[in-house]
């Protein structure tokens, strides 16, 4: 090899070319099987077996499952920007201008970022004033932006904080509002996974239905 390096290099390149052509043939075959047949077949099967989930877990105005985007008022899995005292509010979102599904993402601000700390303090003051509680009673999820910007849930603590305000705005008995929240609170799957959460859209649709 040391006596005639050039032919080795040439045969190496020629070899790479030959193997690349074989590689391209195999890749194209994989593209047909794994890139077209597999996802399309899965789409066909899942559309039949789980049509509601496959199309985005949509809810209509009555809170019923639907697969029609015309009837849908939202997805049980995708948060929305609720403002106004009569609605339960979701978490702060930095996806676009807030809950923009074409711009999912978080703030990516580091734990010691001064701007983030200032924003959290502002949010704390705003949530506290809105719900007539002390700033230290505001739970963490109410003042931090989620990772996706589309988080559909809040903690049970943040939901409890909002019950009195929503009940007053809707002229409802706070106990009735609490019952709706409880109905749409999900515990930890298998008793250990994740954290308990409240589905904000489902609660708001149920409340709108009470009137």
């Amino acid at each position: 090899m040391t006596t005639a390096p050039t032919p080795t290099v040439v045969s190496g390149l020629a070899g790479l070319w030959r193997h690349s052509l074989a590689g391209l043939r195999v890749l194209l075959a994989f593209t047909v099987v794994l890139g077209l047949a597999y996802p399309l077949a899965m789409t066909g099967v899942i559309q039949v077996v789980f049509p509601w989930q496959a199309n985005g877990s949509l809810l209509d105005a009555a809170g019923e499952h639907t697969t029609s985007r015309t009837d849908a008022v939202g997805s049980t899995l995708i948060g929305q920007d609720f403002t106004g005292p009569q609605w339960f509010h979701g978490r702060p979102s930095v996806a676009g201008d807030g809950y923009d599904t074409l711009a999912s993402g978080g703030s990516n601000l580091g734990p010691n970022n001064a701007d983030l700390a200032a924003t959290i303090a502002e949010r704390q003051a705003a949530v506290a004033a809105e719900n007539s509680v002390a700033p230290e009673e505001v739970p963490a999820d109410a003042v931090t932006a989620s990772a996706s910007g589309l988080d559909p849930h809040i903690s049970p603590a943040y939901a409890r904080l909002q019950v009195a305000r929503v009940a007053a705005a809707r002229h409802l008995d706070p106990a009735a509002v609490s019952r709706v929240v409880a109905e749409h609170t999900q515990g930890r799957p298998l008793g250990a996974l994740g954290d308990p959460v409240v589905d904000v859209l489902a609660v708001n649709l149920a409340l709108a239905g009470l009137e």
Partner: peptide
């Protein structure tokens, strides 16, 4: 300040 490291995390 927030009470927990929930910035950039999902509630569920």
């Amino acid at each position: 300040l927030a009470g927990a490291a929930m910035e950039g995390k999902e509630a569920r």
